[in-house]
Amino acid sequence: MTDDHDGVPELLAAWAFGALQPADEKAVPAHLAGCESCAAEAERLRETVRLLDVSPGTAAAGNGSPAARNGSAAVSRNGSAPGVTGGGSAGASVGGPAGADGVLALALRSRPALPRVAAHAAPYAAAVAGLRALLREVDGHGPWGTPVVHDWDVRDTVGHLIAADEQLAVRLGLQSHTPPSRTTEDTPWEEAWNTRTADVIAYERTRDPQETVATWAARAAALLATPEAVDPEPAARATTLMGVRLPVSDHFVVRAFETWIHSDDIGRALGLAVPPPPDAHLWQLVRLAVRVLGMALGPTAPPVLFAVTSGESSTEWVLGSEDEAVRGELVLDAVDFCLLMGGRYTPDEVPRGVAGDEDAVGNVLERAAALSWL
């Protein structure tokens, strides 16, 4: 092929799955580096690969590069298509030319079965699939002992997720993890959270990292197989976790939030870009985060018009007192808002748009950042 635009769109799906013909392996990435429209479409297709949890290269034999084996964690937040400096190496494609329709159809037929879950558990299922795919890349991009966040390395972070998932799992009738918990129902939730994390991480440090990953993956799968994950009716009952009383359905969204945040932590540590949740899932995280923030601010806080944006979508809420006129306006990007709530931005660092009373807006930002337990 030539470096012209003609012919490239038909090859983008093959590129996303690491199934390019040898003759196209250099030309397609070179074209993506200079063509915004093709780069954007390549990004969309690579994200599709990640969400399907299909390992690139399954459409062709002989694909051995780590980047080509895994489509997860491959889209950068700034919108650039990853991998434009190199494509996957592949042998002959299966079933004829590796056009977009053929490769995507093959991927859909060969993808692993995903758990059938209700809408409230879908973000958690997707976050689990994304982290599983990301963890398959660890050996190729850095040791398991790579520092990630707090004083945790990659394995420790997965161990923390085991402990974090356990709180919901036990409430839903699943067994607790080894070692036995030292906390009780009367233990303040912050102390219980920190104690259990420390105990599980200490135990997991005695095991092979792959055993830790297998334990986490099995616990996540068990959570997604509970009646509360597949049926909205039992998920409607409320329970208190991490000091907040919410329906079980919302606690599944919380699990999605934390799993994605720590996936992003691991990706940053390893130099792998982790994309945000799909837009529908991202808005589920945002809506829950706004509700929790509203409860934390209470009915007497100076009222602020709060807008969250994602692409061309935008939603507004009024936070604080209902008895006063709005005193300030705050605009945050959806991902930035989630990162602020997750403690990955300080109130001064998060990109924002502000109008009106800066003190009232600052109160919202500070309260959002203070809610993080991650």
Rank of each mutant, 00 (worst) to 15 (best):
R50S: 15
P303Q: 06
W216H: 15
G18F: 06
N78T: 12
L51Y: 00
G62A: 08
L161G: 03
W189G: 11
G99P: 03
A289Q: 13
P234L: 05
L270V: 11
A67M: 11
P234A: 11
A225N: 06
S249C: 01
Q21D: 13
P234D: 03
A236P: 04
R367K: 14
D153I: 07
L174H: 07
E233W: 00
G64V: 14
A133Q: 06
A68C: 03
R327T: 11
L224M: 07
A19D: 07
P276R: 13
A61T: 14
C338L: 15
A307S: 14
R352H: 05
D101L: 09
M242Y: 12
I266S: 06
E10W: 00
A221R: 14
D231Y: 02
V158I: 13
T206A: 07
L319A: 10
A118Q: 03
P232V: 11
G159I: 07
D359A: 12
A23Y: 00
A163T: 09
D199F: 01
G83L: 09
V138M: 05
L371V: 10
W317I: 08
L161S: 06
T195R: 10
E329V: 09
W317T: 11
P247Y: 01
C338P: 07
W373P: 00
M242A: 15
T58L: 10
T187H: 03
E258M: 04
G62H: 06
A235G: 09
E258F: 02
L131K: 11
L340D: 02
G342W: 00
D4G: 15
A334W: 01
P123W: 02
D153P: 06
A202D: 09
L285R: 09
S310K: 14
G328H: 02
V213D: 01
H141K: 12
A368C: 09
L12Y: 05
V354K: 06
V117C: 04
G294F: 00
R77G: 06
P276L: 05
A33R: 15
F257H: 10
L365A: 05
G88L: 04
G62F: 04
G343S: 08
T178Q: 12
G362M: 08
A307R: 15
R207N: 10
T259S: 04
A100G: 09
P302G: 05
R50C: 12
E366C: 01
D333V: 01
V308S: 03
D208P: 02
V304R: 07
L282V: 08
A289G: 13
L108C: 05
R109I: 05
D6A: 15
P347K: 13
G95E: 00
T206N: 04
P247F: 00
E41N: 08
R111E: 04
T195W: 00
V94M: 04
S72Q: 11
D6F: 03
A107E: 03
D348T: 13
P9T: 08
A280T: 12
P66L: 01
